[in-house]
Amino acid sequence: MEEKKMTERESLELITSMIQRTRERYIGDGNILLMWGYLTVIVTALVWIMLVMTHNPAWNWLWFAIGIVGGIATPIMSRKSDLKSGVKSYSDKITSQIWTIVGLASVVATVFCFGFGLKGFNAWGMMFAIPLLIVPMAEMAQGIIVKERSLVVGGAIGLCVGLFTFCCIVGNARLLINWFLPLFMVAFACMMIIPGHVINHKARQQR
């Protein structure tokens, strides 16, 4: 493209063409979703196996690996993804802010659980319900914004599991590891692993 004068009609056509190009931009990648999905499923499987084999509740400390590893990896991967695409759209900005809120809410929830623990109450069961309530809502919002059905469907499945978990906690039904942890893994696979692969597949096709 050179710097030249145009007719009014050419100007309008150029504007339309550039708007079209920004709309057809690179869809993004599902790598951050995949990282969180696989990390959560692997850690859950590890905790489950170790609790069943050793009956030692100390293995529950492994849950913190999800927050620590994911919390460190996410900004690094996000920056890499932004640099790769070279552009940040308004929807990128909104979804990034939504996920930041989810991250902060998770930190606050963890602090509350610690606080309850110090007062002799065990509130850690809520840490299963909270990610299955907040994360799916954020994911569905993202899916609606970027028009990606796999995120909406995955989020809806996660939200159903989250509401079920919440009802179990409120109704004093015990979340037994032999059925709840596999359910937790399935929910995260539906919420993050499947949509992550779907998005990566679409991105590969778009290139």
């Binding site: 493209m1 550039m18 900005k93």
Partner: peptide, 14 residues
């Protein structure tokens, strides 16, 4: 042409 193209893109992205 080029300045208008740049502005049209930037109007649509952050």
């Amino acid at each position: 042409q080029l300045r208008l193209a740049v502005m049209s893109i930037l109007m649509n992205v952050e």
